[in-house]
Amino acid sequence: MCLKGENISFGYKRNNLILNNVNISVDRGEVLGLIGDSGSGKSTLCKILAGYENNHKGNVIIDGKKVPSKGYNPVQLVFQHPEKAVNPKWKMKDILNEGHIVPQDILDSFGIKKSWLNRWPNELSGGELQRFALARSLSPETKFLIADEITTMVDAITQAQIWNIVLDIVKELNIGVLVVSHEKNLINKLCDNVVYLDAINSVN
């Protein structure tokens, strides 16, 4: 089973394409790294793969089938800024359980404390919010996780904590992961394979 982006092109203006005929594929259980310069369209590619952006050419395919536009998306995207990914008017427990009831063992492995659940998002730090965002997106229905610079804003210890947990869960649930980061050391540590997205937009 694999997630494929076929001949994906995208641009805000017709003659100024951000992505030009990009092909990418992630297998289930694989941890694939994606590296590219600033402005090479990594984040846009992530949004297209996760179905956030629909005005693109080309297809996003799981197992030969198009991803359904309604219902739970098996491709989940987690971003760099967790504070933008939570509704500021919701308590943490509502945010956490929006998609599915997150089991206690996942909470424990992420180190999410009971007392945090009754707090508001602005009372938690970025690293803590990111744990919630990840726990929320790693449901049994999730087949692929796209991690767009998810630890860029946190300190090294939190980064190591988060990735160690994510890799464990991903292995257990047999989820395919696309890791986007500009930090080569991190990618080398985490990923089975690495692809480069450069300015002319060919993945190799």
């Binding site: 180190g111 009372e123 938690l124 730090s125 190591a160 050391n185 540590k189 985490l190």
Partner: peptide, 23 residues
């Protein structure tokens, strides 16, 4: 030291717990 050990090019080793919250 823990911070240094947690870097991906070093041991990528995390210590438990989290920073105390402001309150």
């Amino acid at each position: 030291r823990a911070l240094w050990n947690a870097l991906p090019q070093n041991k990528f080793q995390a210590i438990k717990g989290h920073q105390p919250m402001q309150d």
